[in-house]
Amino acid sequence: MKTTTRSGRMCLVTGGAVIDVERASAGRFPADPLAVFERWTEFTDWAAGVRTGPPAPEGPAEAPVPEPRQVFAIGLNYRDHAAEAGLTLPESPPTFTKFMTSITGPDTELTLPSEFVDWEAELVVVIGRRADRVSAQDAWDHVAGLTVGQDYSERVVQGAGPVPQFSLGKSFPGFSPTGPVLVTVDEFDDPDDLAVECLINGESVQKSRTSAMVFPVPELIARLSAVCPLLPGDLIFTGTPAGVGHARTPRRYLRPGDDVVTRVEGIGQLHQTCVAG
């Protein structure tokens, strides 16, 4: 099953149609995506039998979860990325947040606040059931689905001392695009092994598979939920593979006019056009 959001309304993607959930369900489910995630099991049971219905509003796809309550992001979760950063593999997932106002849809203009904006292609997990001290064995049962994400990063703000400001450096407006759809876990042959790629102006700058993660999705959910409950609609940016601009010699950052495409196998792609701030 696939869902998306248009004009702030939850939509079901089936075949070639995009269906308005509130209208198709005769009001059983609301238009607000977050409210639907609160009833995810009930919603997926209903959606399994839906093939046609009232069309979604016209307009572009928006973030599958436009206003998540919690956004978790993981650093150094690919071995090759830790190596290019010159850091040892972590013993526990380095965790920060991307503030909610940075969330945006899949096809946008990215306003560059400086000359030091970097890219980080990521698989994003969307929580579908409250997860509180969940085991890794049971973790996938708490996932609504997967989507594509970019963890854009302003490296000067991120690295400003005396302690790094990861959350601020990664939360400028438009720095957290997600989409174009959410895909439920049952749609994948192996949700732990998906291709991830980032292209800039057609050049592949990052390419890996999620099976290369240091902490796979179930382990992330187990470790995060051991500290704080994960709520329906919460996002987990699961980390990026090698190939970021900050680790290159010479360093490379995004420039006005750059075209960034981020892909995850079985889900789709994001597209940002960079413009001057």
Rank of each mutant, 00 (worst) to 15 (best):
E109Y: 14
T101E: 09
K170Q: 05
Q137T: 11
Q137V: 11
W40M: 12
V13L: 08
P30Q: 01
R252F: 12
V124R: 00
D45Q: 13
L270N: 04
Q272D: 05
G159E: 03
D193Y: 00
S114I: 09
E219L: 12
I200Y: 04
S167R: 12
L220H: 04
K2H: 11
T184M: 15
E67Y: 11
S25K: 01
P68V: 05
E22P: 01
E38T: 09
G174S: 10
G86R: 03
I74G: 05
G15K: 14
G159I: 02
T4R: 06
H271E: 05
G15C: 14
R251P: 10
T95K: 03
T111F: 08
T262K: 13
R23Y: 00
G266C: 05
P229K: 12
D190E: 09
E115M: 10
T108W: 12
A139D: 08
D20K: 01
P106K: 08
A276S: 15
L235S: 06
A242D: 11
G16M: 03
F43E: 03
E22C: 01
I236P: 02
A61R: 07
L254G: 03
P173Y: 12
E91G: 14
N201W: 12
E154S: 02
V196E: 01
L199S: 08
A47N: 10
G105E: 12
S171Q: 11
S204Y: 11
K2Y: 12
T178H: 05
V134I: 15
V13Y: 08
D118G: 07
F99V: 06
G59Y: 09
L199R: 00
C198K: 09
Q150S: 09
L199D: 05
L76Y: 13
V260T: 07
I200E: 07
V261W: 07
A35Y: 09
D118P: 08
R39F: 08
L254H: 03
V126L: 06
T240G: 04
V185F: 13
G75L: 09
P57W: 11
F172P: 01
D32M: 07
A160Y: 04
D132C: 13
T111L: 02
F96H: 11
A195P: 01
P57H: 11
L270G: 02
A17D: 04
A247F: 15
G169E: 07
L230C: 05
A160G: 01
W119R: 02
G86L: 01
K2F: 14
V21G: 00
F237R: 02
C198M: 14
V261P: 05
H142P: 04
R255I: 03
C198S: 15
V50W: 01
F166Q: 07
S135T: 15
R209Q: 00
A82C: 10
F215E: 00
P232E: 13
G53R: 02
A139G: 09
H246Y: 15
E115P: 08
A144Q: 10
W40C: 06
P250F: 14
G59E: 14
A276L: 15
D258P: 06
F29E: 00
D193G: 02
T4C: 15
P106D: 06
I200F: 09
G149E: 03
S25A: 03
D234N: 13
T240I: 13
P68F: 04
